[in-house]
Every structure is written in C-alpha cells, then in structure tokens.
Design a protein around this nucleic acid. Structure first.
Length: 322
DNA sequence: CAGCGCTTCCGCCACT
DNA sequence: AGAGTGGCGGAAGCGC
C-alpha cells in the first residue's frame, strides 16, 4: 500500500530535501498513469517552522496527520539538536502499526533517535556516516550506497539520492512503468540502483565530448548485443584500463554491472507492456538464455520475471503513454 | 547446483 | 613533483 504520505518536519529543516519529498509524492501524475498519493507536510505545532536557509514554512498539519500515512517521510533536519519527543513518539507509533518510514540524508539521525535504525542496515550522507554509526551503535551503517531498503525502513544518502529512494519505492509498489513515468515527469534519469556508489567523482561532466554518455546511450540502444569491455574501450579510443577507471568515476559502477542493470530494467518494461515469452525477452535484452535473465532478475529485483509480470503486467497491452 | 574456461576488475607500478 | 595513462597478474565473478 502506498497511497498516503506524510512528511514530518521540525525547526531547521533543509528545504531541498523536503522539496525532494514534495516533488516525489506531492504531485498528481494520474494523467500520466502514475498512482495518486495523498501528501501532506506536518509538524508538532502547526504554524511557523524555520528552515536551514533563512526562510520559514507555514505548516498546516499537526502530527496526527501521520496516523493516516502508509509512508512517513523524514527530510534532513538538524542532527545536533534533540528530536522533539512528540516526533519520536509519532514515528514509533507509525512503525508499530506497520507504516513505512523513509529518511533523506541526515534525516537518518531522526530515525536513529526513534530507535528505528537498531539492528537495521541503513545509510546517510557520506560526510556523516561515521557520526551516525557512533551515535547509534546498533545501526548497521553502510556509507557507500545511495539508499538502503530495509523495508519497512528506507534510508537514503545525500540530497538527490532521496529521489532515487523514492523512485525505488514507486517501482517496488507500482512497477517500472509508473516509476519511469514519474522520473520522466521530474526530468531525472529513470533510476539509479541503491547499491551504486555515493561518491561519483564527476557528477556533472564538463561537456558532452568528454563524457561516456554517448557511449552509454549507444549501449542502451544495442542492448541485445554482446558487449566486451575491450570493444567498448576501443569505441571511445581508450585503453581498457583507462576506460574501466573512467567508467567507475562517471557511473559509480563497473561496465558489466551497469549493463546487467540496464538489461534487467529493459526486461521489466517488456514484461509489463508485452506478452512476449520470457525466453524471447531474455534474448531481446541481451541475456544468452532465459535462465540468465531469471538469475539476474532475481538478484536485482528480488522476484522472478513471471511473478513480476503477474504483479505489474498490463493484460490489455494498452500503451499509449510510453 | 557444480564445474570449467573465459572475462572482468582492481591494485600495483612504470612511464609519460 | 604530480596527475593521468596503460600494461600486468591474480582473484573474483560470469556464462554456459
């Protein structure tokens, strides 16, 4: 269930991280075929809430709004100030009744204060991961990833990684097509995988010519073919060694892993919108056989292609929007 | 699911 | 000196 989202804020909230949540959950994208979520921002005492950027919010809802939410979202808030006890109580109550809780960036500290990270794998902005581990010794902090889905508790890394976590949740609940559509409306790349490294060295490459982007889109357009690292390196006139390094710098993964992810992603789309047999989908996305597809699909998505099609497949085959 | 041959990845180092 | 490159080899991972 994912139809009602509440974002919790208190004084000093970071506007960008809150904005990420508003953008992800607060916009009606039903015309694009994305399920609707009721969304509200709430706080202990409705009214003025200060932000970290020198302007204030006027929040209309109190913490009781959380009771209706199946997802409680926590943006980045001051980690050096005590979390209001009422917020702690509300988070714990939400967790106990089975709601999902997600945090963005240092919002993880708020979850930690509510004891929600104890014994769970989690992450936060790489700058603060040591501090998080120190202050919440029972939390299993992984500093190197974009987000961690320890359902029902999802934590994400710095700022924009929150969006990746949101898209991940949409994909999980609504399927790849709805998630891709939402991503498209937000004009962000469809989805980065959670395990992707936080520390991407060249997040904004200087210019098209100095980038692997053209190669990446070429690969995606020719997914059905085999792609050896050596050939790819030649295509961009680099030695295999340099190519591998540049690839990691720009994407945060290795060529092989990246391609596998793309293949699974494409397979998802085909499972959703076509009736093609798994065998044929496997070969269209570049897996040698159906077993290979099943293997990687299971690894990355945690289900089988068949089960995925059951859950998200479009029996009518109508596909006007994508 | 095991085993085998091949590819990939990464640390190290020498060279521009 | 310092940054980027590329070859090498071993371990891990992959496809079949």
């Amino acid at each position: 269930m994912l139809s009602n989202v509440a974002a919790v804020v208190f004084d000093g909230v970071a506007p960008f991280e809150l904005g990420v949540l508003c953008e992800a959950w607060g916009i009606d994208r039903r015309p694009q075929g994305v399920p609707y979520t009721e969304f509200a921002v709430c706080t202990e005492r409705p009214g003025k809430v200060t932000t970290s950027m020198g302007f204030d919010l006027d929040v209309h809802h109190g913490l009781e709004r959380i009771e209706a939410a199946d997802l409680v979202a926590v943006p980045a808030m001051p980690r050096d100030k005590p979390v209001p006890p009422a917020v702690v109580d509300a988070l714990q109550a939400a967790h106990e009744r089975g709601a999902r809780i997600m945090s963005v960036c240092v919002g993880a500290f708020t979850l930690g204060a509510a004891g929600l990270l104890d014994g769970r794998p989690c992450t936060t902005h790489w700058l603060y991961s040591d501090e998080l581990a120190e202050r919440f010794p029972l939390a299993k902090v992984d500093a190197g990833v974009l987000y961690v889905d320890a359902d029902p508790v999802i934590t994400s890394a710095g700022s924009a990684a929150g969006l990746d976590a949101c898209l991940h949740l949409m994909r999980k609940e609504w399927g790849a097509r709805a998630a891709n559509m939402a991503a498209r409306r937000m004009v962000v790349p469809p989805q980065r995988d959670g395990g992707q490294a936080q520390f991407v060295r060249t997040p904004v490459p200087p210019s098209e010519a100095e980038t692997l982007n053209p190669l990446l889109t070429w690969i995606v357009e020719h997914l059905d073919q085999r792609h050896a690292v050596q050939d790819l390196a030649e295509r961009v006139h680099m030695s295999p060694r340099t190519f591998a390094r540049r690839f990691r710098d720009e994407t945060g993964t290795t060529p092989h892993q990246w391609i596998t992810q793309q293949r699974v992603q494409r397979a998802e789309e085909l499972l959703e919108r076509t009736q093609l047999p798994v065998e044929q989908i496997a070969s269209e996305v570049g897996f040698g056989n159906a077993a290979a597809l099943r293997h990687h699909f299971g690894q990355i998505r945690g289900t089988s292609p068949q089960a995925y099609r059951q859950a998200f497949g479009d029996a009518q085959g109508t596909d006007a929007l994508c």
